[in-house]
Amino acid sequence: MSNVHVTGAARGIGQAIALRLAQDGHRVAVSDLESMRGALEDTRNELPEVAAGGHVALTGDVSDPASVRALVHDTAQQLGSLDVMVANAGIAQTKALLDVSPEEYDQVHRVNGRGVFLCYTEAARQMIAQGTGGKIIGAASIAAHKGFPLLGVYCSSKFAVRALTQAAAQEWAPHGITVNAYCPGIVETSMWEQIDADLGAINHVGKGESMAAMAAGITLGRVSTGADVAKLVSYLAGPDSDYMTGQSVLVDGGMLFI
């Protein structure tokens, strides 16, 4: 099995991904912001032990180059290598485009765009140096395939992840590195609870109504869980996806058909 790093793993989708990959038998390094250390340690402690050794918890900021460099270095040093990088960390923003300041735009892209870029490139450098290939996996979204009102800046950052994934897949294929992204729809996480609250405040509707309205269009009839998304990441991290690269795969229960 592989040595894996999952960013933004203190809660939500990242936590579910880390749990699933540990269940698959991988050794996992989980990371998040220093302010999330307590929750991150809880995530690490929930991971089932694997025969090859234990898991590690690291703190860092994916938008900071030195921090990402340290996360990759420490993962490779403590686990022995970095074979799979899951660039999961991200933030949301719910706001009309005419109300978004340049600073607010930059904040979203600093985490969702720059953060994925840094995780991709630092992981690739480590994998190339190791000489054994690897798998790089990024967090995109249905918002990487379609722009949504009041989520315009978030959508633009996820379109960036999709483009970056395609370019990186082509550049790093000669090194045996595949690059793919997962694209969730509506997920039962604290991020979506905040999106629902923000949309409710803008549209003057009650708690849960905005999410219910968006979820009404899901073909499978329910919103997803982190575990639903983690199943796709499990495939992308494993050998069955060896002939797949440059793809941003929808896992949305049937919201978009592209």
Rank of each mutant, 00 (worst) to 15 (best):
L220M: 14
A160L: 13
I186G: 07
C119G: 10
A29Y: 10
V4D: 09
A140E: 01
A92I: 09
L71K: 05
Y182D: 00
D61I: 09
K146L: 14
A139R: 12
Y105A: 12
I202N: 01
A57N: 00
P174G: 11
Y182R: 05
V4S: 07
Q166D: 06
L118I: 00
E104Y: 08
V62E: 09
A76H: 01
G113F: 04
A29S: 14
L118C: 07
E193P: 00
A181E: 07
E209Y: 07
G53C: 06
A22W: 05
A140N: 04
V50R: 06
G217F: 01
A197N: 13
G208W: 04
V84K: 07
G38V: 15
T59Q: 10
L19V: 14
A70N: 12
I13P: 01
R110A: 14
S241E: 04
V161Q: 01
G246F: 15
A216I: 02
I202D: 07
S248T: 13
D74T: 14
P65H: 08
I142K: 02
A230Q: 11
L40H: 08
V4Y: 13
V86H: 11
A92L: 01
M255I: 15
T75G: 04
Q15Y: 12
G176P: 10
G176Q: 12
F257E: 11
V233F: 05
G12S: 05
S31Q: 06
G200M: 11
G14D: 05
A52N: 08
S35D: 14
W172C: 00
T189M: 09
M214R: 15
H26L: 10
D24Q: 15
D74K: 13
L250K: 06
G208Y: 04
L250F: 10
G253M: 00
D24K: 14
Y154E: 03
A216C: 00
T219Q: 12
V229A: 00
D198P: 05
E104C: 06
W192N: 13
Q166L: 11
E46I: 00
A52V: 01
S141R: 02
L150A: 12
Y235G: 02
D42P: 01
L256T: 03
G217M: 02
E34L: 12
N3Q: 09
G115Y: 03
L82D: 05
P174L: 08
H55K: 08
M244G: 03
H145W: 13
S2H: 14
A10T: 10
A39T: 03
P239G: 08
V116W: 07
V100K: 08
T132Q: 15
E34P: 11
T121D: 15
I258S: 06
A201L: 11
A51T: 14
D242L: 01
A169T: 03
A124G: 07
G138T: 09
R11I: 06
R162T: 09
I91K: 07
N112V: 05
L58V: 04
R222E: 09
I202E: 11
G90K: 10
Q78E: 07
V233A: 02
S101F: 13
K158R: 03
D242Y: 09
Q93M: 15
T189E: 07
I177K: 02
S157M: 02
Y235S: 10
G133M: 13
H55P: 01
I202G: 09
V153F: 05
P239L: 09
T132P: 10
